[in-house]
Design a protein around this nucleic acid. Structure first.
Lengths: 218, 218
DNA sequence: GTCTATATGTTGATAGAC
DNA sequence: GTCTATCAACATATAGAC
């Protein structure tokens, strides 16, 4: 085991720290940053509350680490899919598939991130910088520029109506993410139960790309 | 002044209570339910903290009153617009116009409601019942049924592709509401500042109805 | 590294004077 | 109705034993 030094009572290296981080992610996602209690994370992790501070020093740092982890998994996906060499149609398909799958598996993420965004607007900046290793804004600018070029080609070929790359992204993300963010509302005003919502999402994976493409037809 | 009894030191009837409620709405919208401090509401209202309890008994009741007030202004709009006698096209226009105007004036509402929905899923039910005077679910069922009929007509006339009334509502609301919910994110990943976002919304009021209608063309 | 015990600061809520 | 003063409960964080 390279890089491993002899130490006393730990079962496996970094295991406890990871257990705490996992528990923290579950609790922060469920209860929100302000609503989360350190004691609840300790309980969920099966350890003592003092251990949380031993590893993460403060609630502030722990919640930052959790947000960084979650944002680091979600946001790069957008950039990766939109940057790749595939066709515009293919990018739509893949963005829809990826997002609906991810969010179906983690339905609390949208509400959590939206809430975080409003109360700690600076955290995205930090999180993205941490994930990408540098200022994310020029990267995103280049992503949008590439996307814009691809859109322009199709527009000039008469196959698509004109739309800014910004609107393209906003509309596509809105249609993917909002149903999860507003799930409890739709369950009431549209009379869906949990099973109906699952069916709705499964159906949506097939239909949404076509709906979106159709919206962009000339 | 009918119904008014003689009382001592109050400037005007209900004025203080209203001031507190207004302050509470601003603070709850800004800081979220869990993040709000009663002291902060008192400060914002220019009164003492004890007065909040005198009028509303507890933070729980005050936050419920605020949510009820906000939900009571937002949700009935959907039902009203979708139920009216106007054409489907007209309903799309009006829903987009109403929502974008309302949310542009109150950009914190989406994130607040989404957060509330997840941490107090029962409150919508209560709020809507309070607003409409009875169980909102049969009302919404009837709204959807009417909308479905209107959609069916256009589908049979070959002017529109088939879509369930539920998807119709979800897609339209997603495109209207999500940009506000995720505004801080878009400002970073799309390089928008506040002014650019305002322009984007003004533009969207013109373009979104057409985008949505186009998506539904056969 | 992990625990128990405790210090320190907030926060919602009440008592009681005016 | 409105205020000041204060309580009791809770939450974050630290000290120190093992």
């Amino acid at each position: 085991m390279p890089g491993r030094t002899l130490r006393a009572p730990s079962p496996r290296d970094g295991e406890t720290e990871q257990r705490i981080l996992d528990a923290a992610r579950r609790v922060f996602l469920r209860d929100g940053t302000a609503g989360t209690r350190m004691q609840e994370i300790a309980r969920e992790a099966g350890v003592n509350q003092a251990l949380l501070h031993y590893y993460f020093r403060s609630k502030e740092r722990l919640s930052t680490a959790v947000f960084q982890q979650i944002a680091g998994r979600i946001f790069p996906t957008i950039a990766q899919v939109l940057t790749g060499p595939s066709s515009l149609d293919d990018k739509i398909d893949r963005l829809v598939a990826t997002y609906l799958d991810t969010l179906a598996a983690n339905p609390f993420i949208p509400a959590y991130i939206i809430s975080e965004l409003h109360h700690h607007p600076d955290r995205i900046q930090h999180a993205l910088t941490g994930v990408m290793g540098s200022d994310p804004r020029p990267v995103m600018r280049s992503v949008l520029q590439q996307l814009g070029k691809q859109i322009d080609e199709r527009v000039r070929a008469g196959k698509m109506r004109d739309i800014t790359p910004q609107e393209f992204v906003i509309n596509l993300l809105s249609l993917c993410v909002f149903p999860f963010a507003a799930k409890p509302m739709f369950e009431i005003i549209l009379g869906m139960d949990d099973a109906a919502f699952k069916r709705f999402i499964r159906q949506r994976k097939k239909e949404l790309p076509e709906f979106f493409r159709n919206a962009l037809k000339p």
